[in-house]
């Protein structure tokens, strides 16, 4: 399988704090790769670097053969990033927001319509798309943002805690949605501290703690290796 994203020896310092101490992993085409780890492990930092928001202190990131330092614009063209805590313009209607974002990625009007149509299907907000974003609940906003991240069919979708703030039913829906999308050729890199969610979603996972990757592999493989019934127990054993 072709490698979409390759991260090698990534380091990041915030002043004297070493948030990432040299992490490496690969995301292959059409797979869902999950970063799991506790609060402050460095998940968001890793994803922000790949999304061109932060500059790494050291290490190399390659996406579709392009180097992050030399071609950040290539990353922005083909990567969609859903931040951990994100909002949309409160004064815009949901549908206008989708239109606004689609125009940055589409090459013509027809493609804008295609993107927006897809987003409508993904978010399932229906008539509420005609209301201003300011009137949406947290879950509705999250779905809108997820739809906008997936509507362009990016080569890689980076989703930082995609289900944060969603209730059980909505989380389930969103997970199904993400899973469905990879079947259409989109690769996904996501983070979560909900191990069960990651276990359900991911083809492969990396366990991250205090800026280091402890172990990685398929959920099944890891469970067998640590002789555990779920990833939570795997994680506890890996930390020790």
């Amino acid at each position: 399988m072709a490698v979409v994203l390759e991260v090698e020896g990534l380091k990041k310092k915030y002043g004297s704090l070493e948030a990432l101490k040299g992490i490496s992993f690969k995301v292959e085409e059409g797979e869902i790769f999950g970063l799991i780890g506790p609060n402050g492990a460095g998940k968001t930092t890793t994803l922000r670097i790949i999304a061109t928001l932060l500059t790494p202190s050291d290490g190399k990131v390659t996406f579709l053969g392009f180097d992050l330092k030399k071609h950040p614009e290539k990353f922005r063209e083909k990567i969609s990033y859903l931040p951990e805590e994100a909002g949309a313009y409160r004064n815009m209607k949901g549908i206008d927001y989708l239109n606004f974002m689609a125009k940055f990625y589409a090459k013509d009007e027809a493609e804008v319509r295609e993107f927006v149509e897809r987003a409508k299907r993904i978010c399932g907000l229906g008539e509420r798309l005609k209301d201003k974003v300011g009137t949406y609940s947290k879950g509705m906003t999250r779905k809108l943002l997820l739809a906008r991240a997936l509507m362009t069919k990016p080569a890689l979708a980076i989703l930082d805690e995609p289900t944060s703030g969603l209730d059980v039913i909505n989380s389930l829906e969103v997970r199904e949605m993400i899973k469905g999308f990879t079947r259409e050729g989109v690769s996904v890199l996501l983070s979560s501290h909900n191990m069960l969610e990651v276990e359900f979603l991911s083809d492969r996972v990396a366990l991250i703690d205090r800026g280091e990757i402890l172990d990685s592999g398929t959920p099944q493989g890891l469970k067998e290796k640590y002789q555990a019934s779920n990833l939570e127990i795997v994680f506890r054993s890996a930390v020790q």
């Binding site: 928001l53 969609s80 909002g87 949309a88 990625y105």
Partner: peptide, 14 residues
């Protein structure tokens, strides 16, 4: 405040 800056900075525009 609306937490839109991060998204805006990752769209394909300099």
């Amino acid at each position: 405040q609306n937490k839109t800056l991060e998204t805006l900075l990752t769209v394909p525009i300099s």
